[in-house]
Design a protein around this nucleic acid. Sequence first.
DNA 1: ATGAAAGCGCTAACAA
DNA 2: TTGTTAGCGCTTTCAT
Lengths: 341, 341
Amino acid sequence: MAMSPNRSVTIKDVANHASVSVATVSAVMNKNKYVSPELAQRVRESISALSYKRNSFAHGLKTRVSYSIGLIVPDITNPFFTNIARGVEDVASAHNYSLILGNTDEDPEKEKKYLQLLESKQADGLIIAVTARSHEYLQSLPIQHLALISIDRSLFDLGIDTVMVDNRAGARTAVEHLIALGHRRIGLVTGIRGIAPTEERLLGYTEALEKHGIAVDPALIAVSYARVGGGERGAMQLLALENRPTALFMMDGTMAIGALQTIAKLGLRCPEDIALVCFDDFTWAAVMQPRLTVIDQPTYEIGQQSAHLLFERLQNRKRAPREIRLQTQLIVRESCGAMLR
Amino acid sequence: MAMSPNRSVTIKDVANHASVSVATVSAVMNKNKYVSPELAQRVRESISALSYKRNSFAHGLKTRVSYSIGLIVPDITNPFFTNIARGVEDVASAHNYSLILGNTDEDPEKEKKYLQLLESKQADGLIIAVTARSHEYLQSLPIQHLALISIDRSLFDLGIDTVMVDNRAGARTAVEHLIALGHRRIGLVTGIRGIAPTEERLLGYTEALEKHGIAVDPALIAVSYARVGGGERGAMQLLALENRPTALFMMDGTMAIGALQTIAKLGLRCPEDIALVCFDDFTWAAVMQPRLTVIDQPTYEIGQQSAHLLFERLQNRKRAPREIRLQTQLIVRESCGAMLR
DNA sequence: ATGAAAGCGCTAACAA
DNA sequence: TTGTTAGCGCTTTCAT
């Protein structure tokens, strides 16, 4: 597609300009051999005079390192992943690595496509929130080449470094908070099944109910997807019930927005008629109506830590896989109704 | 940093496996030469049998195209840029290009660093929201190599394709809306100076006031930066005035969040005591308190269009530079006080 | 219709 | 201490 542009400055040009060999130029650039101060100086001057920049194709062809890593998430537009991306990018950039971004929309086919792209680009590493049942692709990857870090979803069983949140505890906390507030019929709107956050939060929800002797009513569990529209749909399903829940636990922040809209559309009030708690905090949570009670996830840290893990592994391929579980935090605001007391 | 991994499958392996020459393999991959159907088939089988993926270093070294483009924005965490990124990524991905992301935080030094990174990575193109006065770097870039598209901020004067919004009209609309609502003392909180959105919106603000015979009061203009904290600070500066404004026009959505918080902190109500209009809409605008009256920018489209422009230019380096101005849209909700009537 | 081989720009082993 | 050169995997001209 792109037309071939004219030649740019090569290491040979620098060598000629400084009247040294290309090996010498290479040596000063990589500081991996002794070069006399005078020559080194001359080379540096030529480099800046010609504003030479190393061709990373040639460099990578030789060394097999690309100085770039991938980040594959379902949707960068979800603030949860936006903040993760920022965290990853900040540490990648500090290591002089560049970040290649991909959105899967939870579609295994798109995931596969990005994986192949990154493989052919020889990315040194990859941080990925895998889609549901995508493990077979991962297995077939030349994993020894690509340092792999799983985020949000666990691949620890496959021996892959993982950074995620304690979903079960988070969900338990949320539901117990609602129970403490007197709720017995607590509706749950989940994201897609088959990914760790959904399954673990589901478990936490169940545990909390059982612990307090409340039977789990399958009718109160709506399976949906992590978008505003998914929240609207899931909330609608539950609130349309004859014997509708008095509280809603939404598994994702974007879904909580949707739930709020559905509640309003039905002419109900939150928290007076329906209490609401959700995962994910927002920068603007304080100016929402009602102000959301949330299970806050340390999003930026997830990004940071996963990138750290990645660079660690790049340096030591054989260290044992690690699973980092970050803690969530209940932030009580208005939507749960606690302020009503 | 990364250790050298073991060899992967090369074109030579495929050639051996299919008992043909590497030239033939290359020909079937690139479909640029006649290859007999039988050989082509054999090659294709070998490729998938060995799950061969072309080494993009070698490919790029030869062809000088990297199939990757850069996107440099101030902060991906600002929803305005998040949506742009999604738009860019979607079309890049459709072209089998990958997207390299960078955040500048409006710091010209960071911008320079990314520019160099992308140059050495031989990115085929770059979509950038330039920082204030960064034009000298851009000039020194081997622009003939790198297709450049400017977004949000204009570089059209430099002959560079530009996609932006009609800031002046947007600001005028916002301010006239406030004037129509009876406001005379309209405070303005700007982002950093020296970038087109700030300067053009400032112009629109001034024009609207003058058109209605209202003198521009410099005390009502606070210069700040596009973050929640920047909005808090800017709003505080204006609301602390003895003769404080009755309405606030915030140049950015994140700043509007900050303004709302400041208004609340001062014990004022929006819109009853202070009316508010801002640039940028949010997915969750409908569930904010108050619901924000905004000048909506077509963020996703900015991303899409800029990427289209980029691929267009990649195909035709010499077409005349184009400036695309997208229109904004006033969305009247509660924060302006229009609903109070 | 297919293959041999040069060469893209760089690194690193080896020579001098 | 510095330079010569092979070769990374691919594309493409030129032979055959």
